[in-house]
Design a protein around this nucleic acid. Structure first.
Length: 482
RNA sequence: GGCGACAUAGCCAAGUGGUAAGGCAACGGUCUGCAAAACCGUUAUUCAUCGGUUCAAAUCCGAUUGUCGCCUCCA
């Protein structure tokens, strides 16, 4: 099976075939950096992180471009309201670029903490002002835009296909309401390409239409096509951006180039908190940083990935803890396999059962991901694999080569791709505690031989407070970090 | 008001016409000096409700109820 993706444009699941075989261009809407990253960002960027890694795992070369919106924008169709970045700058009494700098770096740091790989590169709106002005000029020249008093608007009526992504048609009633409020525009659905800046607006640039700043949508049109080509493979983003943002991007881009913009549209669903929308105005948004103080990156990832990306994720503290609790078995198995793979004794043969198990897991997990990134299915198969592997390992001793084969499956999917298996199951801290733990285990062995169970148990209990657990098995004691 | 999505065990959550994945929790059991881990078993005759299509429906169609999202910036 090849990779299939649900394309929002056609509303069907389609086989994914890049424009150029073996090479993929993907553009994902990045954050506007005026506040700390939250769980919604995490869901979106973890989703595309897994998608890109999977495409690469399937042998494709992927160029993944993500933007950083560092120009503040007003509400897109309104002429009133305050620039988001400038507003935050006013509140904090700093320059807008200080806001941009602060939250952009927090974004990078938090995404990294969530084990999200960097895109191929980030692009910033402020670094492409010239290109945006050019695009606006082309739209004016082609009659798709008009200028009024330093503002330039896109003429929606000049692009009959407007609405093809979101399935929206003109709503006469709502328009009628807006016409009164926005009489400057020819049509209430027209949107700003370039906004005239008042002197108080700090981030502004020269343009053929006077001092101003670009409209919200144009940056994505310009930057995606600049780095990926006029027609490119995948455009991703949050569902809430489908309209109007992506609709406007399509209109602008296709009017500038005369070609199809993005070929596949991939939208991730939203995050709710206790059943209701997570929104800034509702004050219920969960920041990544806050979540990371209570949960590991793996816990947050498995929580998010255990719901399909096109379904809404409902955050509750219980749900995330429950999802994380299951991870222990994978971590323990990994620690066990790491130890078992180090030995040199035993046969070099890989038993038929182990081999079949690993191959089946590879196939099943891969197919789940091929199927529109079915991460819940992939996780289920990984758990099934872990159970089956443990069963076999309990029956017959593992040879090092068998352990390595099992470890490879766990690493390939659980660690590298999904990022849900802790990298250091045994783990090294600041100091290397291994000799110390070996000594403790040796001492307990002597105590147990002498039937001094009270002391042996006391050591085991106390060591737990220090963050380690000792497990006594038939083959001897072993330890791991909690 | 317009557009769209979803309703599956105590909780989270797959299922894309062929007879209900997986995780958490709970309760038994094996193993163990005990504990932990691991493994085995039990927990939805049923998929919001009511109709319809079909040999066959959680899956398709219609109606009803409920929840959520978008239509204003938001991942």
């Amino acid at each position: 099976m090849s990779v299939h993706l649900y394309n929002s444009m056609t509303r069907t699941k389609e086989e994914f075939k890049p424009l150029t075989e073996g090479q993929v261009g993907i553009y994902v809407c990045g954050p506007t950096v005026y506040g700390p990253p939250h769980l919604g960002h995490a869901k979106s960027y973890i989703t595309f992180d897994v998608l890109v890694k999977h495409l690469r795992g399937r042998g494709m070369q992927v160029r993944y471009v993500q933007n950083i919106t560092d120009v503040g924008h007003l509400t897109d169709n309104a002429d009133s309201g305050e620039d988001k970045i400038q507003k935050q700058a006013r509140i904090d009494r700093v320059h807008p670029l200080e806001i941009v700098d602060r939250y952009m770096f927090q974004y990078f740091t938090d995404m990294e903490a969530l084990k999200i790989a960097h895109p191929s590169f980030y692009v910033r709106a402020t670094q492409h002002i010239g290109e945006q002005i050019e695009a606006v000029q082309i739209l004016l020249n082609k009659g798709h835009a008009y200028e009024i008093g330093g503002n330039v608007y896109f003429d929606v009526n000049s692009f009959p296909q407007y609405g093809k992504l979101s399935g929206r048609v003109l709503d006469e009633q709502r328009e009628a309401v807006r016409v009164e409020a926005r009489s400057e525009k020819r049509n209430p659905r027209d949107f700003a390409l370039w906004k005239k800046a008042e002197p108080i607006h700090i981030l502004q640039w020269n343009s053929p239409w006077g001092r101003g700043y670009p409209g919200w949508h144009i940056e994505c049109s310009v930057m995606s096509t600049k780095y990926l080509g006029e027609t490119f493979d995948i455009h991703g983003g949050g569902l809430e951006n489908m309209f109007p943002h992506h609709e406007c991007e399509i209109a602008q881009s296709e009017c500038v180039t005369g070609k199809t913009f993005a070929r596949y549209w991939v939208h991730n669903n939203m995050v709710t908190v206790d059943g209701v929308k997570m929104g800034k105005s509702l004050g219920n948004f969960k920041t990544c940083r806050d979540l990371l103080t209570r949960h590991s990156a793996e816990a947050i990832r498995v929580f998010i990935l255990s719901t399909h990306y096109r379904s809404p994720t409902n955050y509750t503290e219980e749900a995330i803890s429950a999802a994380a609790a299951g991870l222990t078995r994978l971590a323990v198995l990994k620690a066990f396999l790491e130890t078992a793979s180090k030995g040199t004794e035993g046969t070099n043969a890989v038993s038929c059962d182990i081999s079949t198990l690993c191959h089946d897991a590879d196939r099943q997990i891969g197919e789940a991901l091929d199927n529109d990134l079915d991460t819940p299915g992939a996780i289920a198969h990984l758990y099934t694999f872990a159970t089956a592997f443990n069963r076999l390992a309990a029956q017959t001793p593992l040879s090092p080569i068998e352990a390595r084969e099992g470890l490879a499956v766990l690493k390939r999917w659980g660690e590298d791709l999904l990022g849900i298996v802790p990298v250091s199951a045994v783990g090294k801290g600041v100091a290397d505690v291994e000799p110390l733990m070996d000594l403790i285990i040796e001492l307990r062995k002597e105590l147990k031989t002498a039937k001094r169970y009270d002391l042996a148990d006391k050591i085991r209990d106390q060591i737990k407070i220090a963050g380690f657990t000792i497990e006594d098995t038939r083959e001897g004691s072993r330890w791991r970090r909690l």
